[in-house]
Design a protein around this nucleic acid. Sequence first.
DNA 1: GTATTTTATTAAACTAGTTTATTTTTTTGG
DNA 2: CCAAAAAAATAAACTAGTTTAATAAAATAC
Lengths: 191, 191
Amino acid sequence: MEEYAVLYSYFEKIINRELTEAEEEEISSVFRKETFNKKQRIFNAGEKNTRHYYIETGLLRMYIIDQSGKEFNVLFGKERQWLGDLGTPASTSYFLETVEKTTAFSISEDAFSILMNKYPDLGTNIRRSYIFLQKRFVAILSKTAEENYEELLTNDPDLVQRLPQYHISSYLGVTPVFLSKIIAKRVKKRD
Amino acid sequence: MEEYAVLYSYFEKIINRELTEAEEEEISSVFRKETFNKKQRIFNAGEKNTRHYYIETGLLRMYIIDQSGKEFNVLFGKERQWLGDLGTPASTSYFLETVEKTTAFSISEDAFSILMNKYPDLGTNIRRSYIFLQKRFVAILSKTAEENYEELLTNDPDLVQRLPQYHISSYLGVTPVFLSKIIAKRVKKRD
DNA sequence: GTATTTTATTAAACTAGTTTATTTTTTTGG
DNA sequence: CCAAAAAAATAAACTAGTTTAATAAAATAC
């Protein structure tokens, strides 16, 4: 089993044809395949030149710690998704950590910029993450936590199942206690 | 008085030397100088290929309208700042509108990408706006409206003075009524 | 497999922020 | 400069979400 098969198939999907041997060679030379245990830190706020991660299997969360020491999950990433700080190579304000045991292909910002010239659709992924964050921003401002939870449940039920509840509450911007209340209310309603 | 003087001086600042005549010629050929009246719409949600704006004088706001019809100010831009949807040329979800009468230099995404190759610091401005939005996101999640108001007052008192209060409340994610309460409380405290 | 730790639930008292409605103040246009 | 419109203030009743603390359930480790 080719170690980079999942990565190649991602590229083949975005260019809509098979990769040549030379291309496979080039790709595997700039990516690094890495495996992390459950709850393992990948990078810390304050670090520079953090890498981008294309996830093969597993689940990651990118979060911030505020002045009072509270964590806020900003984005999750699971298999076949990209995660990383778009602000790199500047010093990041995020922590990146696994939720589950994870295998991912990582690449430096420099190599990523070069690759983007060859595969412009890579850039689209970057933008997508920006736009996603903007939508989330407005959703949290304009909707109740209950509505936002419902929406997450519709858009990505798998994520809701795989994440501990306190990670979801932090993602929705409420306390674990309040999310638990929302869920209890939902269950009752269904009868 | 040279029509593009403010724009040239911005470029001279980022490259840290004077522009040649040829460079000035090139710059003025891709930008368009535009003037908008107070409360004039510049682009609407749903439009494609929206332009980027470097503001000479005046004040703009970029906002979203949610399902219930409520407006949310996402970013403001004033003289010597950039504003625009980074997601362009894809269909935007923002409205861009003046708060004050405004003069700005506008440029298309295509021309902007080309210019970025010559002046890489242009890209830094783009990133800055992304990072700024992320910080705002966390601030709104993790702090009270009162703290966020205080912070805005410290970081940009000029903006607070120039904006009607209901635009600020929308930016902070609270109702105008509640912001008015915060301000009344602050005034009392000071005695 | 059971002890220990981690995560989720429940309850009660509280606070930040909303809603609606009325009044006052400020801004704008002719 | 005045009339009309827009913006801000105030009040009161309400709701979404927090905090603290105690209990229950689930996951993990040896």
